[in-house]
Design a binder for these strands. Structure first.
Lengths: 343, 343
DNA sequence: TTGAAAGCGCTAACAG
DNA sequence: CTGTTAGCGCTTTCAA
């Protein structure tokens, strides 16, 4: 069974005995058409199962394609899934479709994806920048009117809109919560790589909170993990120090899973925990997990709205929009520090 | 600042003083080209920031576009995120890019998306079919050689490849596990709508397990929920029956979250639970949550591999491939039924 | 109200 | 090794 050719405008026109342009007119509701021809054309379209070739149309019209290119680190990460959903919800009514790819936080893969998207003449480009990626090659595109938005982290080498969480303030609030409950030995388990923007910002918030409380910054309390298992290891390491941590701050959702899993395994209910980014079932844990919740929906919505405004001609300065985080106190951060019992 | 035109092949050709075809040859490594011209061309390409227009290329070449259309119910659902990731990983080396959209389980939105994808001449179409959707309009496309794959659920009106979980066997095993621990009053909280394929299959597995143990099927024990809050309500309802459930089977991951949350809130540690589909932190709960785990990665990989084989000319009969589930015993299903204490 | 011709950016087919 | 011509499927422009 040979892959027979899809019907074209010309096929429909021939079927009706009319010119291709007339068919085009009917389908695009461009120009006039007699009720009679319109009906005949629509009938032929249905009969042949004709679907206009969007690529051909786009070529001729010359404008950008009705797609939006989205580069994220990992399609399977629920955080980015939520962001993508919000973007789609926002752009759908404008008729834009999502072209997605994951970079695995690899600058080369990120570049390959953006190049592909550019070759497809996307209407909008949204990128979660990988560490080490440079974006100066996008300057000319942005100058030519292509909206480019960075998500979750700022990009390098290109001045454009960025939508990020309030990482620093959020981490500060989470750590301050632990300090308020008497903790002085607070472990920090962050993202990898250590140069990652979100990790740096959250660590900065951690340090600020310590400073405000006149607590020393002890490098031995700061570590990192790039997956759940790594967070398990980091947890037992921090609890095994000569002067161990009495509380832990999780730098992201994956780390949070590792910390909680390890504390559950080792039955260390005495350790206070605050996590950056919410996780499912946080309320069902014992104690329920206190988190600094991000708002991925708001990040996605804002990114989409910003890009659409640019598409509509907004030529104002590039902005960095910070989406607030919210401390959700559920219990795990309120376990008092044992050392404070100074009877 | 006007949106100035992107450079074309002709622009590059003019810059070098050579024909458009020569530039095309160099870029596509088609036909011969002197080292000299090659260099000049590449230099001009870099200088102008030329990127070939993939749509124009596709039109001329006539084949399908190097995209794969993927329709899922919800971009934010981690299960489908994992499926999408596996698909992307499998097709990436073939140079295919993901075109994604969410249907919200609405047949009309599903149809609008597939039509868009068809208009873009995708190489492959993958669909998680919505309840009530009909797919006979895809017959001609499939006959013309377009690989169409249904994910998670079979489609209606079209005979083509489907990749599904072993819903029935998995649910059976989970319920049998509860029965083996003495439970006779096992509540079932399923998906909505009730006609959803996965719900029907899982309920069938539940019934089979009951039958095998000569337990009656009590409709009062079967309910449903379409979100976490609904599952909370359903849980308290099943536990409030005159002859209440002593164990619960969750029909999906969202329901599992609701059940666990409600049992934690009401401190009902005496209730045994098994959930269909794994959830994060299942091990950290008390008791740890026993689940019938699906394998979204394998579903995605299999779907992609099947579609690629079709693309390579496999014309064998449409297959339904069942990806096994796996019972992961963690404790929550082993709580003994109180009624069984018969001195 | 309709059609013919030209052309979008690219490549196939054939020259040279 | 390189160029010319034609044409992919569609829309724009102009004319009827």
């Amino acid at each position: 069974m040979a892959a027979n050719r899809r019907p074209t405008l010309a096929d429909v026109a021939r079927e009706v005995g009319v010119s291709a342009k007339t068919v085009s007119r009917v389908l695009n509701e461009d120009g006039p058409a007699s009720a009679q021809t319109r009906e005949q054309v629509l009938a032929a379209v249905a009969k042949l199962g004709f679907q206009p070739n969007l690529m051909a149309r786009n070529i001729r019209v010359g404008g950008p394609d009705t797609t939006i290119g989205l580069v994220i680190p990992d399609l399977g990460n629920p955080f980015f899934g939520a962001v993508a959903r919000a973007i789609e919800d926002t752009v759908r009514e404008r008729g834009l479709t999502l072209l997605m790819g994951s970079s695995a936080d690899d600058p080369d893969r990120e570049r390959a994806l953006t190049d592909k998207f550019l070759a497809r003449r996307v209407s909008i480009l949204m990128i979660v920048p990988s560490v080490g990626a440079d974006h100066s090659h996008l300057k000319s595109h942005r100058a030519a009117g292509l909206p480019v938005v960075f998500l979750d982290r700022p990009g390098v080498g290109l001045s454009t809109d960025s939508i990020v969480s309030s990482n620093r303030a959020g981490a500060h609030d989470g750590v301050a919560h632990l300090i308020a409950h008497g903790h002085r030995r607070i472990g920090f388990i962050g993202d990898l790589p250590v140069k990652l923007y979100t990790r740096r910002e959250r660590l900065a918030g951690y340090r600020t909170a310590l400073q405000e409380a006149d607590l020393p910054y002890d490098r031995a309390l700061v570590t990192n993990a790039h997956d759940q298992q790594g967070a398990v290891t980091a947890t037992s390491q921090l609890l095994g120090l000569a002067d161990p941590a009495t509380a832990l701050f999780a730098g992201n959702n994956i780390v949070a899973l590792g910390i909680v899993a390890e504390l559950a395994r080792s039955k260390r209910k005495d350790i206070a925990v605050v996590a950056f980014d919410d996780v499912p079932l946080a309320e069902a844990l014992e104690p329920a997990l206190t988190v600094v919740a991000q708002d991925p929906e708001e990040i996605g919505r804002t990114a989409a709205a910003t890009a659409l405004a640019r598409l509509d001609g907004d030529r104002s300065r590039a902005r960095t929009i910070t989406v607030p985080t919210r401390l959700i106190v559920r219990g795990s951060g309120e376990h008092p520090a044992p050392a404070l019992q100074e009877g």
